[in-house]
């Protein structure tokens, strides 16, 4: 079976004020079915532009994007690609359409022309997965940011996608909201087997992924498991990116001459390593 997402030499350029902006300059990214990939990088590195190519909101100016064996530049596949790849955006207020939670979740299935009884079943199921069943009749504006994002995730899930692409879904949330959203995502990936592409500013969030891809200047400049990527502290610092707390700590301790194994990402791992090394 081909990988779920494959981009080949993906380039995207658009004119702005008489100049041509080259947002993507040859991106080769492969995401396997069931994988959890985090995309990190400084502002303007092309992360969001890449995300919008993954459900054919943007079509490459050069190169190709394949989703589940379908080429995004072929208009015949548009609807199916958008069904299989659900999107969640940064601002929870700007992506909710309806005035009640259940109508919101029903929006995607309604667009697909699914019969009402089936929509009802999917709405219930999606709300159950994100733990918002009790809020079905609430208007979205009465919910917290984290709850709104979970509704947005439920809305994407109701179309029964194979993959979720999330563009900084936690950046406008408070700590509690972030945790709610990340727990939901990890559960969806581990338990339901959903493929996840997460764009994030948070290195802690990125360290929960199977794989991290670092973007800069419209290219992927670094790619690997979180342990591998976060070993490259200097390279990341050069891009203005930090490390997860535990990795940063380990890095500094090593600098002070304390021997620690590589690939420490969580506080627990760090604590255990310190106990055994001491």
């Amino acid at each position: 079976m081909p990988p779920f997402i494959q981009t080949r030499g993906l380039e995207y350029a658009y004119p702005l004020d008489g100049r041509v902006i080259r947002a993507l300059r040859g991106v080769d990214l492969t995401v396997e079915r069931g994988e959890f990939v985090a995309l990190i990088g400084p502002n303007g590195s092309g992360k969001s532009t890449l995300a919008r190519h993954l459900n054919a909101l943007l079509i490459p100016t050069a190169g190709e994007v394949w989703i589940d064996g379908m080429l995004t530049s072929d208009p015949r596949h548009l609807r199916e690609i958008r069904r299989r790849v659900g999107m969640v955006f940064q601002n929870p207020d700007n992506q909710l359409v309806a005035s009640t939670v259940e109508e919101e979740v029903a929006f995607g299935p309604e667009n697909l022309g699914i019969p009402p009884e089936e929509i009802r079943r999917r709405v219930d199921e999606a709300l159950e997965i994100v733990g918002m069943t009790g809020y079905r009749h609430h208007p979205p504006y009465m919910l917290s940011g984290g709850q709104k994002q979970r509704i947005a995730i439920a809305g994407a899930l109701a179309a029964r996608p194979d993959c979720l692409v999330l563009d900084e879904p936690t950046s406008m949330l408070d700590a509690h909201g972030r945790q709610q959203v990340m727990e939901t995502l990890v559960r969806l990936n581990r338990e339901v087997g959903l493929t996840i592409v997460l764009i994030t500013q948070s290195m802690e969030e990125a360290s929960l992924a199977h794989r991290v891809a670092v973007m800069d200047g419209g290219r992927i400049v670094l790619e690997g498991s979180p342990a591998e990527v976060f070993e490259r502290a200097e390279a990341l610092r050069g891009l203005g990116l930090g490390l997860p707390f535990a990795a940063e700590m380990a890095h500094r301790l090593r600098g002070m001459g304390i021997p620690l194994p590589p690939g420490l990402l969580t506080v627990e791992e760090l604590a255990r390593a310190l106990c055994t090394s001491g």
């Binding site: 958008r82 601002n91 309604e110 009402p116 179309a159």
Partner: peptide, 27 residues
């Protein structure tokens, strides 16, 4: 206007189209 732009993108991403093939949760 900024909201409108974001919302349009989000609706498109969820396969919105105005057509008789749209169905309703509540009939």
């Amino acid at each position: 206007f900024r909201r409108a732009e974001d919302l349009a993108v989000a609706m498109e991403a969820r396969g919105f189209r105005c057509s008789p093939h749209r169905t309703r949760l509540y009939c």
